[in-house]
Every structure is written in C-alpha cells, then in structure tokens.
Simulated assay, not measured.
Amino acid sequence: MPDSKERYGTVSKWFHWLMGGLIIWQFLKLGDRISEGEHWIGQTLVPWHVSIGALLMVLIVLRIFWASGQLKQRPLHDPATAFVVKAGHLALYVGMLLLPITGLLTMIGNGYGLKVFGVQLVAKGPEIDWVATLGSAHSPLAWIMVFLVIGHIGMALLHHFVKRDDVLRRML
C-alpha cells in the first residue's frame, strides 16, 4: 500500500519502525560512555554497533529514494507548523545519513578497518589523520540525534495525547 494524503503506506511504515528500532539500539552505545561498557548492554548489544550502523546506512539510502517517490502522496502538515515539521524531519534524515558515514570514517581513519556482520569489508590499515578527524564528528552527531529523536517522539505523543489529532495514527 503506497502513501496517501491520510496515512503512510506499508513500505514507509516498515522503514520508519525498523529504522527507529535499530536507531534506538544504536543509542545503547552511549551507555559505554557513561559506564565504560561494563554491563550487559555493553557486552551483548554494543558489539553489533558497527554492523547495525552499516545496515542503517543502506536502509537510509533506500528510504530516501522511497520517500522522494512518495512526496506527492504524503499527508499534509498544518500550514502553521509545516516549516518546523519539515525542518525537523530534514534534520533527522541528515543525522541518519551522517552518523553511519562518520562512523565509517572513524573506523577507517583510526586504522580499524571495517567488519560488518563478520565479513571484513575494509582491511585494518594505517591511521589516516584527516579521515579520523572527519570521523570525530560521529559522537557529537550521535548526541544531537538523541535529542532529535526524543523531540520526534515527544511531538508524536503530544499530537496523540494533547492535541488528539491523527498525526501518530498515520504511522501506526
């Protein structure tokens, strides 16, 4: 089912919820920063961080192509807030694209190589300072993305429970 003026379609919903779940999983990596990874999350879920990031990079590219083909069918936004809504979604898309790219730059720039789901895609090698420097944007971008996602969830809940409109139901 494609997107319509009333609801998002099946493919859009799958992209939204699958990527949302994977992004929340990725945020568990921030727990390493807080507790040095000495907990069950750091030992069981975080080792998948690079692989899930690579998967998210593929998914965001596919999602951008899908979404660009659905623009005319997308639900309309309240004209009073349309600019803010579009800016917020654009920021989320930019974050979803830049995070895996900067993560990749971090891995390669620091000489770690790239191993995705057990397959070595880029061999370990020498450190490349300028690539690592670009990759150093990964952590600050992750924190910005946390706030964007919290804002996104907060606004969806505000629409559902306070404004009591159809915004959240469009994606359910």
Rank of each mutant, 00 (worst) to 15 (best):
M107C: 15
A132C: 00
L97N: 09
F117G: 10
I101L: 14
G113H: 00
G109D: 02
G103R: 07
L99S: 09
A123L: 02
M96W: 13
L99F: 05
L114W: 00
L121Q: 06
L114H: 01
V122I: 15
P126L: 09
L121C: 03
G125D: 05
L97V: 15
V94L: 15
V94S: 10
L99D: 11
G95S: 15
G113P: 05
I101P: 02
G113W: 00
L114I: 04
A132Y: 00
V94G: 07
L98F: 12
V131W: 00
H89A: 07
L104D: 06
Y112V: 05
Q120S: 13
L92P: 12
P100K: 03
G111T: 06
M96S: 10
A91Y: 01
G95H: 02
G113F: 00
N110T: 14
A123N: 11
T133E: 11
T102Q: 08
G125E: 05
Y93T: 11
L97W: 06
G111R: 09
Y112N: 14
P126Q: 12
L105Y: 03
G125K: 03
H89T: 01
L105S: 07
I128D: 00
I101A: 12
K124D: 04
I108L: 12
L134E: 06
S136A: 14
N110L: 11
G109W: 04
G125S: 05
G111N: 03
T102D: 07
Q120F: 03
V94T: 12
P126G: 12
T133F: 08
L114M: 11
L121R: 06
H89F: 12
D129E: 13
G109K: 09
A123H: 02
V122A: 04
T106D: 09
L105W: 09
G109R: 07
A123D: 13
P126T: 12
K124Q: 13
G135D: 05
Y112I: 05
T102N: 08
Q120L: 07
G118S: 06
L97A: 15
A123P: 04
P100H: 08
